[in-house]
């Protein structure tokens, strides 16, 4: 049996009165790619933001690499170095160059050797086709370029696990393919374990080992990808798939 890298049990989350996640249970094996699908407002983003401590949860446990996470800010700071996250709105730091954006985590948080970290950052930039942009500021980049840098910035910390939160949702259509190829490459070549929230159904189908289908904060279905896209178990999932163009 494959090694479980992440296990979520009985997770509950509410904002004041609104209950947004109900009894969430799932696990992710090492090297597995999970896509999180569901209508807007179903709690997908909230759920993956819980997994690196950007959202607090009220009940339940998250176990990462065999250890149950005690959700204090200090512990999350450690865990976030192992769980990289890329957001919809890229969020590069506008006051730093591309290179300094990438190096901030490795050199300041992880105290890696600056020279080696820089060399590695350049290799990563090369991999996403941006080796000539190390010294420019984020405002000089297009949306797609910014998102690639954001991915590199997360990878530079050597994470064991990546979270992608609708990373192509605010990009021009012609930029989307490039970003998805990078993620695909991470899965195929690096065997990176990841959870991908996306509305790109073709991509989800292509990359996912397992699909978790979420609605109104409940997991309605978690099935191997092939089965989900050919014969989903629930009516809601079928309706959801029918409503998507792909």
């Amino acid at each position: 049996m494959a090694e479980q890298i992440l296990r979520v049990e009985h997770l509950e989350k509410s904002y004041q009165k609104k209950h947004v996640l109900h009894d969430i249970n799932f696990h992710v094996d090492k090297g597995e790619v999970v896509t999180l699908l569901g209508p807007s407002g179903s709690g997908k983003s909230t759920l993956i933001r819980c997994l690196n401590g950007l959202e607090e949860y009220q009940k339940g446990t998250i176990t990462f690499e065999g250890k149950e996470i005690v959700p204090t800010e200090k512990n999350w700071q450690q865990i976030r170095q192992k769980i990289g996250m890329v957001f919809q709105s890229y969020d590069l730091f506008p006051n730093l160059t591309v290179m300094d954006n990438i190096l901030l985590g490795p050199t300041k948080v992880q105290k890696q050797d600056k020279f080696a970290a820089k060399k590695e950052a350049l290799d990563l930039l090369k991999r996403v086709g941006l080796q000539d942009y190390a010294n420019v500021y984020p405002r000089q980049l297009s949306g797609g370029q910014k998102q690639r840098v954001a991915i590199v910035r997360a990878l530079a910390l050597h994470p064991d696990f990546m979270l992608f939160d609708e990373v192509t949702a605010s990009l021009d259509p012609e930029m989307v393919r490039g970003i998805l190829n990078i993620i695909q490459d991470l899965a195929d070549v690096d065997h990176m374990t990841m959870i991908v929230v996306t509305h790109e159904m073709n991509f989800a189908q292509q990359i996912a080992d397992k699909v978790i289908f979420l609605e109104d904060g409940h997991i309605l279905e978690q099935t191997p990808s092939k089965q989900f896209f050919s014969a989903p178990q629930t009516k809601r999932a079928q309706e959801f798939l029918d409503s998507m163009d792909f």
């Binding site: 800010e73 999350w76 170095q81 996250m85 969020d91 730091f93 901030l104 985590g105 300041k108 910390l157």
Partner: peptide, 23 residues
């Protein structure tokens, strides 16, 4: 400063001091 900046700083493991100092 947008909330997103704070979150993406946290997401790379910055502590509070580093978040203020560099971002």
């Amino acid at each position: 400063v947008p909330q997103h900046q704070k979150e993406s700083g946290k997401a790379i493991g910055l502590n509070r001091y580093q978040l203020y100092r560099y971002v």
